[in-house]
């Protein structure tokens, strides 16, 4: 089965207090040198059948109308190569 990953992030101009809270906690935890953190969502979709143009069109529509609220969020859609996963080790 093929996997399609949809990443959803707040638009750059939208304040992200959750990301800021994570960033502010980093020095206290001993992690230095991180200037900014933005927090988002990742959806992993296991697709039945081939990931062809029709399947990707449908996923794009899903992302645009449901997974992301495009008033405040941007999204990206990419196909993940499942065959190689786990063999790299």
């Amino acid at each position: 089965m093929a996997r399609v990953v949809v990443d959803v992030m707040l638009k750059p101009e939208i304040l992200d207090p959750q990301g800021q809270a994570v960033q502010r906690a980093l020095p206290r935890l001993g992690f230095a040198g991180i200037a900014d953190v933005r927090q988002g969502k990742r959806f992993e979709l296991e697709v039945e059948g081939p990931v062809d143009d029709a399947a990707l069109d449908q996923i794009n529509t899903m992302a645009e109308t449901f997974l992301a609220n495009t008033v405040i969020e941007d999204f990206t859609v990419r196909v993940e190569e499942v065959a190689h996963r786990g063999e790299a080790k």
Binding site: L15, P17, N69
Partner: peptide, 17 residues
């Protein structure tokens, strides 16, 4: 109502969390 787009804009987590 904002999610249906009957009203414009969106609601986000409170700025103080």
């Amino acid at each position: 109502l904002t999610e249906t787009h009957l009203l414009p804009g969106a609601m986000l987590r409170n700025n103080h969390l």
